[in-house]
């Protein structure tokens, strides 16, 4: 008998639409939908996709506990031997949903789970320790390879075959060290590595020293009554017409906009251009993302000193970590020069 596989996908890959359908509640179909059709084909005779569970990304992200529970019930209904979620490529919310449902199904149903993501997807750092996340390209253009690699790994897991190291199997490692035999002994590997290092060539260490991305928290603001506070946002709220042509996703720039004299961000003068969430609310009232109105009010009441005259905004979807770090560094230096005392940063 063939192994039973269930696929989890979002509203977009189920063909229901993008952001307008992102609040789709979970449902299941007794057939392969979207990418699950190709997965079913690739699995061949050894396994079969017996059902597809669909859930909107925003629904999952905003109702994570309920969404998790409802999706799990639907998956459980098929009594699968393995769950495949996504692939999510570089879609952050989809990645989180895929990772979360995989970890949940793995823990509660005790079945192996596989998903696929681009290395910068936040889901990778969050969930790679607890499920198999196959490395994919950053967008659905890489679908063909992604599905091939996901099904290859899935079949190995279903059959209980011994896995090679993560880098050879093509998934993000789960933070586990396991012993393998190399072709060469350790002494030869060491001399090879040293000679490469001496020549300035690329070499690959066999054990990375732990890197800590954390930084020491900055000192708190002591005198809030006289403090200048700046608003920064990755929520994509910009002056109407997007004068700086900031990209709706995978941003390569940010904007700095004068808000002096503005008490309220009305939809006539500001809009959201963010490509990663439903902009309906933000476009009715941009303050729900970039809260100028209430900040101005608090400023007038004397709760804090001054709202800085400029806001900095960009779009935080699909934006590379390197770019995000560069934006942060430049904005930080700018704010320091301006004598700003603290920042409130909103993200969607």
């Amino acid at each position: 008998m063939a192994y039973k596989v269930v696929c989890y996908i979002n509203q977009f890959f189920a063909g229901m639409g993008g952001e307008e359908a992102a609040h789709q509640e979970p449902f299941a179909k007794r057939e392969p939908l979207g990418p699950a059709m190709q997965i079913n084909f690739l699995l061949g005779d050894e396994a079969e996709v017996v059902g597809t569970v669909v859930c909107g990304d925003s629904y999952y992200g905003e109702n994570i506990e309920i969404a998790r529970e409802r999706c799990l019930e639907l998956i459980k209904g098929f009594s699968p031997d393995l769950l495949i979620a996504g692939p999510a490529f570089n879609a952050g919310r989809y990645g989180v949903a895929c990772g979360d449902i995989c970890v949940t199904a793995g823990e509660i149903l005790g079945i192996p789970t596989v998903t696929g993501m681009y290395y910068e997807n936040p889901g990778v750092e969050l969930y790679s320790n607890k499920t198999f996340i196959v490395k994919t390209a950053d967008s659905a253009r890489g679908m063909k390879d992604a599905l091939q690699n996901i099904t290859t790994l899935s079949l190995k897991l279903l059959k209980g075959q011994k896995l090679r190291p993560a880098e050879e199997e093509g998934y993000f490692h789960r933070g586990i060290r396991k012993n393998f035999f190399y072709e060469e002994n350790g002494a030869k590997r060491a001399v090879d590595m040293l000679l490469k290092k001496l020549k300035g060539e690329l070499f690959k260490t066999e054990y990375e020293m732990p890197t800590f991305k954390k930084i020491t928290p900055a000192k708190p603001v002591k005198d809030i009554k006289n403090a200048t506070i700046a608003l920064v946002s990755s929520g994509g709220v910009v002056p109407k017409g997007n004068p700086d042509r900031i990209r709706v996703s995978s941003a390569e720039s940010y904007g700095k906009y004068d808000i002096s004299g503005i008490d309220d961000l009305s939809p006539e003068i500001f809009e959201s251009i963010h490509g990663g969430y439903d902009r309906v609310w933000a476009n009715k009232d941009p303050d729900v993302v970039l809260p100028v109105d209430v900040m101005r009010q608090l400023e007038k009441e004397g709760v804090f000193g001054k709202l800085y005259d400029y806001v900095y905004t960009t779009t935080g979807t699909g934006t590379s970590v390197a770019n995000a770090e560069r934006f942060g560094k430049e904005i930080g230096e700018d704010l320091k020069k301006a004598g700003v005392d603290a920042v409130i940063l909103t993200s969607t």
């Binding site: 190291p165 993560a166 586990i176 396991k178 012993n179 190399y182 072709e183 002994n185």
Partner: peptide, 8 residues
């Protein structure tokens, strides 16, 4: 020996 720990 040829043994080494690798990530899985």
């Amino acid at each position: 020996g040829r043994i080494g720990a690798r990530w899985v």
